[in-house]
Design a protein around this nucleic acid. Structure first.
Length: 213
DNA sequence: CGTTCGATACTCT
DNA sequence: GAGTATCGAACGA
């Protein structure tokens, strides 16, 4: 039988651990986005760990800036960044305050409010694609810069919360190289996903782009 | 389902 | 100025 997902929020202590512990433990958890039209719930199926100052792939690698400021704050908060001129991606800050580690939320399954996400994800060829990729996930949940720095551990009517859900069994969690990270030729296998889940995004190696002349 | 190509504007050098 | 923690359109199978 399938256990009923636990709808209690994850605590700040959950996120106040090494990011490589937190990242796989987030799989199967439930992200709830409160919108004026109603809640959207997503079961996390794919994440990536970014290990603060020790990780050349991390936005925090070269120190604190206006963009990555939230990463240096308390755990359990939302870090949103803008990339490729068009897209937002969302992370959850981990580790003790000041460590600047975070988990990128890469993909998930919409389990509630799918009708609300379809209006923003018109290009999705099926519901499996609604949140298949980090920018698609953010678009589906209507996440943008306005949510940067918000607390995902607060209860009540916070715009974003993370609930306990049903953690993926450890033997169902696979890991491999991170997607699209410059210079990370499999050195850091810090992408984690649920085995055989149809909502996991395809792996893409990093491709440097040059501007047209 | 897969591949290829290029749009886009922000961040840091 | 250069690079980017990506995606969608178009096309083929």
């Amino acid at each position: 039988m399938i256990a009923t997902p636990d709808r209690t929020p994850l605590t700040r202590e959950f996120f106040d651990r090494p990011v490589l512990e937190v990242a796989p433990d987030l799989l199967g958890r439930i992200l709830v986005r409160s919108t004026p039209d109603g809640p959207i719930a997503l079961r996390l199926t794919e994440v990536e760990a970014y290990d603060g100052p020790n990780d050349p792939g991390s936005h925090a690698y070269r120190g604190r800036t206006a963009r990555n400021d939230v990463m240096f704050g308390p755990p359990g908060h939302v870090y949103v960044y803008f990339t490729y001129g068009m897209w937002f991606c969302m992370n959850l800050v981990c580790g003790p305050k000041g460590e600047s580690s975070a988990v990128l939320l890469r993909a998930g399954e919409i389990i509630e409010g799918a009708e609300l996400t379809r209006k923003r994800r018109l290009s999705a060829r099926s519901d499996k694609e609604l949140a298949k990729g980090p920018a698609r996930l953010a678009t589906a949940l209507d996440v943008d810069r306005a949510l940067n720095g918000t607390d995902a551990c607060s209860d009540g009517d916070a715009p974003l919360r993370v609930l306990a859900g049903t953690a993926a069994a450890p033997d169902q969690v696979l890991n491999g190289p991170r997607t699209g990270v410059a210079g990370d030729g499999g050195v850091h296998p810090w992408r984690f996903w649920i085995a055989n889940d149809p909502t996991v995004s395809p792996y893409r190696a990093h491709v440097p782009r040059r501007r047209r002349s």
